[in-house]
Amino acid sequence: MSELFPVSVSVNGVAHGASVPARRLLSDFLRHDLRLTGTHVGCEHGVCGACTVLLDGAPVRSCLMFAVQAAGHEITTVEGCGTIEAMGPVQQALTESHGLQCGFCTPGFITTITAYLRENPEPTAEEAREAISGNLCRCTGYQNIVKSVLRAAEIIRGTDAEAGDRQEAPA
């Protein structure tokens, strides 16, 4: 068997440790070694974004990193963005705006949007669309995910107005 490397990482603020082969992808490590299956795998070549997690706060593809490389870093997965009882703003916005259907792509959108809104708290509809343009969704046609980004921004800003009336203007 190949050599095992001890990996200690902080995931969602909790210290985790496991010994894994060097080739273990971070996505597999999170899902199968740590059993945090909220992070999904849709392509394993970096295109779909379903596996996006935050590495020290910045979105990265967990399918394009080895678990050993995450040692010593702080990782945030969708599980760290809120719980059923206490949803985070992005999760709440997606729920309110029907921003998901099958939900498979959703964790990658949540991590991506969470990081985006930290730096861009007041996006326009066009900017919101651009912000999610590195993640694939096959179900929603993105309309309501764009809406969700705007709605999440409102929730975070605390204005909490109706998100529905901030429709994207047709070109």
Binding site: H32, T37, G38, Q91, T95, L100, G103
Partner: peptide, 22 residues
């Protein structure tokens, strides 16, 4: 009506095929 499946799905509590059988 807001979807009842969503709270589970947006918090990483969905269970898709590869989430089973570790």
């Amino acid at each position: 009506v807001q979807r009842r499946e969503d709270p589970r799905l947006v918090t990483g509590n969905g269970r898709y095929l590869d989430d089973l059988g570790h």
